[in-house]
Simulated assay, not measured.
Amino acid sequence: MWVKSGLLPLLFSYLLALVLTIMPIPSVLEPWRPDWVSLVLLYWLIAIPHRVGFGTVLVMGLLTDILMGSTFGIYAIALVVMAYPALRHFQRIRNYSLTQQLIIVAVLILMKRVIVYELEHVLNDAVFNLPYLYPVLSSAIIWPWLFLILRRYRRRYLIR
């Protein structure tokens, strides 16, 4: 039942995004780690907005808060704010070329990262460093490939 409805493959993609977020990588590449949770959520928000909404985004944000050890709710708030324009304009974004989508994804992830930084700064006196914004660039670069992989995955497992 879960596989037929596409729920299990959808949950697996969320789990994989969370694992990639905390998976160890060489310290030289750590500042460049793409924002996997945001990328996967943005894809599903654009592809199947009738199944993935603010509830999913909120749960993924809270799980990210737990995994990252941040103040509870920071990532959840930032992801919900990031998701709003994607959900509001999903039909328009869906019809853009991959290059145009790449720019939109970069702006949305930049917005999310700025919100997370501001909340961390206010609550925990976080200090800004330029490498904090590197994931915006790496996420934008990865978006076309991730889009194509997840589209094939969605079609393969009939996620609708």
Results as ranks from 00 to 15, higher is better:
residue 1 M to D: 14
residue 3 V to L: 08
residue 5 S to Y: 10
residue 5 S to V: 04
residue 8 L to Q: 11
residue 8 L to E: 13
residue 9 P to F: 03
residue 10 L to K: 09
residue 11 L to C: 12
residue 11 L to P: 09
residue 11 L to I: 13
residue 11 L to A: 15
residue 12 F to N: 05
residue 14 Y to Q: 08
residue 16 L to W: 06
residue 17 A to M: 05
residue 17 A to C: 04
residue 19 V to E: 04
residue 20 L to S: 01
residue 20 L to I: 02
residue 20 L to Q: 05
residue 21 T to M: 15
residue 21 T to D: 08
residue 23 M to E: 06
residue 23 M to R: 11
residue 24 P to Y: 11
residue 24 P to Q: 10
residue 24 P to R: 12
residue 26 P to H: 14
residue 28 V to L: 12
residue 29 L to A: 15
residue 29 L to R: 04
residue 31 P to Y: 05
residue 33 R to K: 15
residue 34 P to S: 10
residue 35 D to S: 12
residue 36 W to N: 00
residue 37 V to L: 05
residue 38 S to K: 13
residue 38 S to E: 07
residue 38 S to W: 12
residue 39 L to Y: 03
residue 43 Y to A: 00
residue 44 W to S: 02
residue 44 W to F: 11
residue 46 I to L: 07
residue 46 I to R: 08
residue 46 I to H: 01
residue 47 A to R: 09
residue 48 I to W: 00
residue 48 I to H: 00
residue 48 I to Y: 04
residue 52 V to N: 00
residue 52 V to S: 00
residue 53 G to M: 03
residue 54 F to I: 11
residue 54 F to Q: 03
residue 55 G to V: 05
residue 55 G to W: 02
residue 56 T to N: 13
residue 59 V to F: 10
residue 59 V to K: 08
residue 60 M to E: 03
residue 60 M to L: 08
residue 61 G to P: 07
residue 62 L to S: 00
residue 62 L to G: 00
residue 66 I to E: 12
residue 68 M to Y: 04
residue 70 S to I: 01
residue 71 T to L: 13
residue 71 T to H: 05
residue 74 I to F: 05
residue 75 Y to P: 01
residue 78 A to K: 06
residue 79 L to F: 10
residue 79 L to G: 08
residue 80 V to A: 11
residue 85 P to D: 03
residue 86 A to S: 09
residue 87 L to W: 04
residue 90 F to Q: 10
residue 91 Q to G: 11
residue 91 Q to T: 15
residue 92 R to E: 09
residue 93 I to R: 02
residue 93 I to V: 11
residue 93 I to G: 02
residue 96 Y to K: 08
residue 96 Y to S: 04
residue 97 S to K: 08
residue 100 Q to A: 12
residue 101 Q to G: 02
residue 102 L to Q: 15
residue 102 L to R: 15
residue 103 I to C: 05
residue 104 I to M: 09
residue 105 V to I: 13
residue 105 V to S: 02
residue 106 A to P: 03
residue 108 L to M: 12
residue 108 L to I: 10
residue 108 L to Y: 06
residue 111 M to R: 12
residue 112 K to M: 13
residue 113 R to K: 15
residue 114 V to Q: 06
residue 114 V to F: 05
residue 115 I to Q: 04
residue 116 V to E: 01
residue 117 Y to R: 07
residue 118 E to K: 00
residue 119 L to N: 03
residue 119 L to T: 06
residue 124 N to L: 11
residue 125 D to G: 00
residue 125 D to N: 14
residue 127 V to T: 09
residue 129 N to W: 11
residue 129 N to Q: 14
residue 129 N to G: 12
residue 130 L to C: 07
residue 132 Y to C: 06
residue 133 L to N: 07
residue 134 Y to E: 08
residue 136 V to A: 10
residue 139 S to N: 05
residue 142 I to R: 01
residue 143 W to S: 02
residue 143 W to V: 02
residue 144 P to E: 11
residue 145 W to C: 06
residue 147 F to I: 04
residue 148 L to Y: 11
residue 149 I to V: 14
residue 150 L to H: 09
residue 150 L to S: 04
residue 151 R to M: 13
residue 153 Y to K: 09
residue 154 R to D: 00
residue 155 R to L: 13
residue 156 R to P: 15
residue 158 L to F: 10
residue 159 I to Q: 01
residue 160 R to V: 10
